[in-house]
């Protein structure tokens, strides 16, 4: 076992564990939006950053090995401020429109953000945005030019809700889907889509429902009755 310290509390984990696993063992909830348990870290969302005490660097908890004697901060104000900004950046390019009259105030998690989305109750972006008091409009700006809704027999894909975590790409590739999903393009305009301009309905033969279940937002949702 190796011993690490998170927010001043020591915990023992098996060698090779991540800081994220160590924090979870202590009951500390780190917003790891792009991490699929049991898989390699995607290090895409960067909402799970922790601060390494020895050198002061912010590192993603999902991809940082818990080495013996490592000490990190997770719930300090400076770490929370970075996570809050990262969540606000994700919200700024995520269709999660506030309803008329909603204040967007951080104080009232119950009415915030007022998503018009079918997946609002399971959306982890929404959950953490509320927990961190992230204001969805503070960093507003241009949105990616993504296409409209795409349909599959079992699931629906709404690209404007996708935060590019890469989990569905990971699941479809690991399952050996013949077509699968992939990241298309680069930079701000990157999107998850079917390779070689294929049809979304043909992309996922076996893992459609699994992808929808693991999607951290309402970008991939299961259809009723499937």
């Amino acid at each position: 076992m190796v011993r690490v310290v998170v927010d001043g509390r020591e915990v023992a984990v098996t060698p090779g564990s991540t800081v994220l696993a160590a924090a979870r063992k202590l009951g500390i909830d780190i917003p790891a939006l792009c991490f699929l348990p049991g898989n390699a870290a995607n290090t895409a969302c960067m909402a799970c950053v922790v601060r390494r005490v020895d050198d002061g660097l912010m590192v993603p908890a999902c991809a940082t090995e818990a080495t013996d004697g490592l000490e990190v901060e997770s719930e300090s104000e400076r770490v929370r401020a970075v996570r809050r900004t990262v969540l606000e950046l994700l919200l700024s390019d995520h269709v999660c429109e506030a309803r008329e009259g909603a204040t967007g105030s951080a104080d009232d998690a119950a009415r915030y953000p007022e998503c018009e989305c079918a997946e609002r109750d399971v959306c982890r972006l929404r959950k953490y945005a509320a927990a961190y008091g992230a204001d969805p409009r503070r960093l507003g700006g241009a949105r990616r030019a993504v296409g409209g809704r795409q349909e599959h027999a079992e699931i629906t894909y709404e690209p404007s809700k996708c935060i590019l975590c890469g989990i569905c790409v990971q699941i479809s590739q690991q399952a050996g889907e013949a077509v699968g999903l992939t990241m298309i393009g680069r930079g701000f305009e990157m999107r998850v889509d079917v390779p070689l301009e294929g049809e979304f309905e043909d992309a996922l033969e076996r893992t459609a429902r699994q992808c929808a279940g693991a999607c951290p937002t309402g970008a991939l949702t299961r259809k009723a009755g499937t």
Partner: peptide
Amino acid sequence: SCGKCTPCRVG
């Protein structure tokens, strides 16, 4: 920006 991580892609 390659687009992989949020701070660089959107920030």
